[in-house]
Amino acid sequence: MKTTVKKNKVSLIGVLLDGIVFKNPVLIQLLGMCPILATSTSLENAFGMGVAVTFVLFFSNIIISLLRKIIPEKIRIAAYIIIIAGFVSVIDMILKAYLPSLSSSLGVFIPLIVVNCIIFARAESFASKNGVIPSAVDGIACGIGFTIALSIVSAIREILGNGTILGFHIFGESFQPATMMLLPFGGFLTLGFVIALVQFVTDKIGKGGNK
């Protein structure tokens, strides 16, 4: 019991660093694999998806944290879904109205944020147990962590698979790209290498800190 009380007084910087680096939802916790693989074929899409997820995470974390004492235990998942679906619909409508080309290229993956497991994981494991401000920071941190991971994977896939970055040809028009990197197979491959690299680096840092 005492540990949970202590845990509630987490430092905001700690929460921020956890979300972005040490407990990165994608690269360390391996959550949200489906949107990572599906929307990482171009950096532009990836960034848009990351911002949309961050928006939903931020607001759903705040609302769930505010309502954490009102939401009955039995129906908490249903209540989370309603709240998350509400904000996903909001971002869907905003994107359609103001960024229609991004909205059409992300297609069904915007509505599918409703069942994104990162948002559920943060609602269940953080926002429902912590105050509003740490939850808001956690939402932003995990959103940024997701966006960074997605951007890294998509940048690699776009450069190798299409020879472009944000639509600009970097090797010249005649470059013959490896289309395989754009297939789901290339997504798994890239993600695997990125995760391996991150694990290697964090492992080194962890060991250095202990010594």
Partner: peptide
């Protein structure tokens, strides 16, 4: 008018 096809393919 609108599409969500894969870039490059």
């Amino acid at each position: 008018i609108s599409d969500s096809e894969t870039v490059g393919i």
